[in-house]
């Protein structure tokens, strides 16, 4: 799918480039990182500027900030229990970062950093390291009991232990690929249909009418992508919570 004349070029939108001029180039600061900074600024802005009134009866922005807070807080306490409260800031950061990153990517000309497997895997690796460290520090050597459930017949150990180890190790992989694949697929589709609009519009006198079809589809797709953006952020956060629950309670 190389860019040749009028061919469909759905992948160049994921091409990394340095941003912020020569300063960014000297430290390899990419446009992806620029959007991460935007996302962080939006999150911090919502949670500080939105909460600036600190009112008992919240206004619109304060309601939004509070519902984000309470949504994640409830998720963490429901999934992990009361011991999970200290992980709340982490899960909140993760959820908001992914959510705002997904949403920002839907704006025209914006870069979607969650469409990079390196980024999603980086986030998943943070989660993986965290759950392993938490489980190890809470349970010590008993942590290895996680790979062999209590009460299982001993002769099944050669089967259960490798399966459990593989499933444990595959967590960051599935976590990162799920988000990455969803975002890439959505953005490729948007780009493909957007290209159709332009290509069909160039087809003589009937072209503009034909191009309404992919345009309509793209409008629907954008709505769908908003749903996916939220859903994937939610899935990422809730899976993190479930892993944290396993780490805290060991099954």
């Amino acid at each position: 799918m190389a860019a040749e004349g009028k061919a469909i070029d759905a992948l160049s939108q994921f091409q990394l480039a340095t941003s912020l001029g020569p300063i960014g180039a000297s430290v390899n600061f990419t446009q992806s990182n620029l959007y991460m900074v935007f996302a962080a600024a939006i999150i911090l802005g919502l949670m500080t500027w939105g909460m600036r009134a600190r009112a008992v009866v919240p206004g619109r922005w304060q309601s939004l900030a509070e519902s984000a807070y309470e949504f994640i807080h409830r998720m963490v306490t429901d999934q992990v229990g009361d011991e999970g409260k200290r992980f709340f800031p982490f899960v909140f950061t993760l959820f908001m970062f992914v959510l705002v990153g997904n949403m920002l990517g839907l704006f025209p000309y914006a870069f979607t950093f969650t469409s990079h497997i390196a980024v999603t895997f980086g986030l998943a690796a943070i989660v993986f390291v965290l759950i392993t460290v938490v489980a190890w520090s809470l349970h010590g050597k008993k942590f290895f009991g996680y790979f062999f459930p209590e009460g299982a017949p001993l002769w099944l150990a050669p089967i259960i232990v490798p399966v459990e180890i593989v499933s444990y190790l595959s967590r960051p992989v599935s976590l990162s690929i799920r988000l990455f694949a969803n975002m890439v697929a959505g953005h490729v589709m948007l780009k493909v249909f957007a290209t159709f609009v332009v290509m069909l519009a160039g087809l003589g006198s009937v072209g503009p009418f034909l191009s309404i079809m992919p345009l309509t589809l793209n409008v629907a797709l954008v709505g769908f992508e908003v749903l996916v953006a939220f859903l994937q952020a939610y899935v990422f956060a809730i899976l993190t919570c479930i892993y944290l629950h396993d780490a805290v309670h060991l099954h």
Partner: peptide
């Protein structure tokens, strides 16, 4: 692409 790895380093810093 060195930018790919740089991106992750910056991700860790920003996150």
């Amino acid at each position: 692409n060195p930018l790919l790895i740089a991106q992750v380093v910056w991700l860790l810093i920003i996150f």
